[in-house]
């Protein structure tokens, strides 16, 4: 029989996720200026990592699976950062038509 995780680990994971949900929900009502977005994204990333580590068993799985799990994320970061790099810098250099 395969090794299984203790039930309490899953319950704690779920409680942590619900606590993070409450946190992001509550912070939305506090005006932090541009930091609202940063905190909301930070909490979302934390939740995604917790789900991947404990529910999806990334913790304790092979290096090969770790690589496959982060590959999609890395390409998504390339996609968004390079495209934003274009949009943000438009107009920085005056063009003579």
């Amino acid at each position: 029989m395969e090794e299984v995780t203790q039930p309490k680990v899953y319950v704690r994971t779920c409680v942590a996720l619900l606590a993070l949900l409450a946190l992001t929900w509550a912070i939305a009502y506090v005006d932090l200026g541009p930091f609202n977005l940063i905190v909301a994204l930070g909490v979302a990333i934390a939740k995604a990592i917790v789900i991947a580590l404990f529910f999806m068993h990334i913790k304790g799985s092979s290096r090969l699976l770790h690589l496959a799990a982060v590959a999609g994320m890395i390409w998504l970061l390339f996609l968004i950062s390079l495209t934003l790099g274009d949009y943000i810098t438009r107009g920085w250099v005056p063009l003579n038509h």
Partner: peptide, 25 residues
């Protein structure tokens, strides 16, 4: 199948703040 279900959960974890909690409410 569990991996798929958790992934769909993760997508919603990002959709919720990005769509419902834009800026300060």
């Amino acid at each position: 199948a569990g991996l798929y279900w958790h992934f769909v959960d993760i997508v919603w974890v990002f959709l919720f703040p990005l769509l419902y909690l834009v800026g300060h409410r």
